[in-house]
């Protein structure tokens, strides 16, 4: 992807850009909001990563100006603060995702890819029925099937399957799943995601079927599409 990174801390920007380039992205660094807006006018970008605390112009202000000038590219907002109020502000200003610095590049990469596949960050997602290969999930009716077989899932497992299905073919990191499926704004130290994936897998493969969930080591989980 062609990424615009708006970050005033040179050292951090350089390191993050290097990490992202190692993951096959092209990265342009803009140290201020003004520079970012100018660069965005000249060149098309697939997505942008904007730091909240910028000199002169706040990250949300940059975002607002981008949106006002018709640039609807996906934006992930970075912040050193973790306050829920600020996250809500950032999302309301038009950010598609809000992440607390520092976040591993792999995490940013996964989130950007998920955004690019057109899935917006929504709490809990919609209730429409999702179909991925032989798996059908209907969150609104609280039911799921593998082929003809109804799956006996508790609420958490159903929501987890729905989120994976909605983003089929994209890797969802543990942090993303904790945010979207568990609804937590903190990171537990125990591996609650892994345990839940394991339980879900068991139920999905109860009749001897193959494993539709792919574990991407060091990054997260993905539902095969």
């Amino acid at each position: 992807m062609n990424l615009l990174l708006v970050e005033d801390d040179e050292g951090y920007a350089a390191t993050l850009a290097e990490e992202l380039r190692a993951l096959d992205h092209q990265v342009t660094i803009a140290p201020t909001g003004g520079a970012a807006l100018q660069i965005a006018d000249r060149e098309p970008f697939d997505a942008a990563i904007i730091d909240r605390l910028l000199p002169q112009m706040d990250g949300t202000a940059v975002l607002r100006r981008l949106r006002e000038s018709g640039k609807m590219l996906p934006v992930v907002m970075l912040s050193a603060l973790g306050r829920s109020a600020e996250k809500v502000e950032g999302l309301e200003a038009g950010a598609d995702d809000y992440v607390v610095k520092p976040t591993p590049a792999a995490e940013l990469d996964a989130r950007l890819k998920a955004l690019l596949r057109g899935r917006q960050w929504t709490a809990g997602g919609g209730g429409d029925t999702i179909r991925v290969r032989d798996i059908t999930v209907s969150p609104a009716r609280f039911r799921a099937w593998r082929g003809e077989r109804p799956l006996d899932l508790v609420r958490l497992e159903l929501n987890l399957l729905a989120e994976l299905a909605r983003n089929a073919g994209t890797v969802l990191t543990r942090a993303m799943l904790i945010e979207r499926v568990w609804g937590y704004d903190f990171e537990p130290t125990t591996n609650i995601v892994d345990v839940q994936i394991r339980a879900l897998r068991r139920k999905l493969m109860a009749d001897g079927e193959d494993d539709p969930i792919v574990t991407v080591r060091g990054v997260g989980y993905m539902l095969r599409d």
Binding site: D9, G11, T15, L16, E18, E19, A80, K101, P102
Partner: peptide, 18 residues
């Protein structure tokens, strides 16, 4: 503190990852 201290830590972590 959040901005000034977390960022160097993030830099350090990034460098190690690279």
């Amino acid at each position: 503190i959040a901005h000034d201290m977390r960022t160097p830590l993030a830099r350090l972590r990034g460098r190690l990852a690279l």
